[in-house]
Design a protein around this nucleic acid. Structure first.
Lengths: 196, 196
DNA sequence: ATATTTATATAGCGGTCACTACATAAAACA
DNA sequence: TGTTTTATGTAGTGACCGCTATATAAATAT
């Protein structure tokens, strides 16, 4: 994490931007883009606003860096779950259970970073989160379509909707056990609609 | 709607508070509590801040009036859906379909006013919305428990989670057809888990 | 008419927001 | 050493937030 990129000539930084991105993820995940102020961020990082803007440019560009960072490190590993060597309904059931586990894993940052921020008030942040959400939904839909093209759209919508619900409920009182039970109940519908 | 309550002696109001509550519902429903400023509200109502505060006291107390008003007029009529004379799984399927229809009915104010605002950044508004949400979930759980006490908790959680997902998706691109298809898919799980 | 009551319009309160102008400190390079 | 480069800390900017002090306008009551 301490990526001291080879230093050039000026005064050295007093903080590590990569670590700052990881810290920013915690804040954005816990409270959402709108509710985190640049002042909150600079206080947590122990720096002043000019250092923040010199390193990241703007609040929204830091948020985009956080999304990129999280997609490659902490988010649900879709490609390892949506495997071609097991039944689609099983893969989707695993996906929902994994979502339940992820969303409940850190009570101080419950739910999905991407899904929660697809509903924030800042247009740019919302659209940035939405693009990640759309990409994930496309991956799910295409995975289903490989073996169940006729049901891909509505099943993908159902899975996406259930994940949104799981994320929302993770933030409003549902714990791991409840989320898992809901995920397993949803999987019943998947088994029922996908020929096996 | 034009409830001119019997006037006393002072200068008469230039606006109808009951109509203002209905207008406020549209704004809060379309954008959420955080994203609606008092300035937005007074501009829409054609009044000045002092008139607003004289009539409603504060932004949060207007929001609470909006919730009360909406629960009694525009929200999903739970008591007429959760009927004791038909199968629980059927009632819940109707509830989910009705949610889909409600959440998609006004594209400029998509989703559920209550559910969407259980996730806003203002603590008081969030808790006000949450209390309505909890009441609705309790009603669902108790309805299920009358005939399926062993499954009431997890089935109620599943229905609540699905409604949260429907509301979220209604705000992010899913239209009536998609929401209805998702509701019907969720109903398969309900039929599967509730003995009939 | 005058007093009382209530709602109004103007103007602005202190606070927070994302962001920046400016001078300086700390490093590498010549 | 002196120049260049980069990041820093101090101290703000203007815009918007929820909300209000103050004076006045418009009704009823006496």
């Amino acid at each position: 994490m301490t990526t001291n990129k080879l230093r050039g000539r000026g005064r050295p930084r007093t903080f590590d931007p990569a670590e700052a991105v990881a810290s920013a993820r915690i804040l954005f995940h816990a409270r959402g883009y709108d509710a985190v102020s640049v002042s909150d961020m600079t206080t947590m990082l122990g720096i002043n606003p000019p250092s923040f803007y010199a390193a990241f440019g703007s609040k929204i560009s830091l948020f985009k860096r956080v999304l990129d960072y999280w997609a490659g490190s902490g988010a649900i590993p879709m490609e390892s779950i949506l495997r071609p060597d097991r039944p689609v309904s099983l893969s989707l059931a695993v996906l929902l259970e994994e979502a339940a586990r992820h969303y409940a894993s850190d009570p101080s940052a419950a739910g999905c970073l991407v899904l929660e921020n697809t509903r924030c008030d800042d247009k740019d942040a919302r659209e940035a989160a939405l693009s990640f959400n759309v990409a994930a939904e496309d991956a799910i839909r295409e995975y289903i379509a490989l073996r169940h093209p006729e049901n891909a759209d509505c099943v993908a919508d159902f899975v996406s909707t259930t994940m949104s619900g799981l994320s929302a409920k993770a933030r409003n009182g549902h714990g791991l056990a409840q989320l898992l039970a809901t995920a397993r109940l949803a999987a019943i519908a998947l088994k029922g609609v996908l020929p096996h």
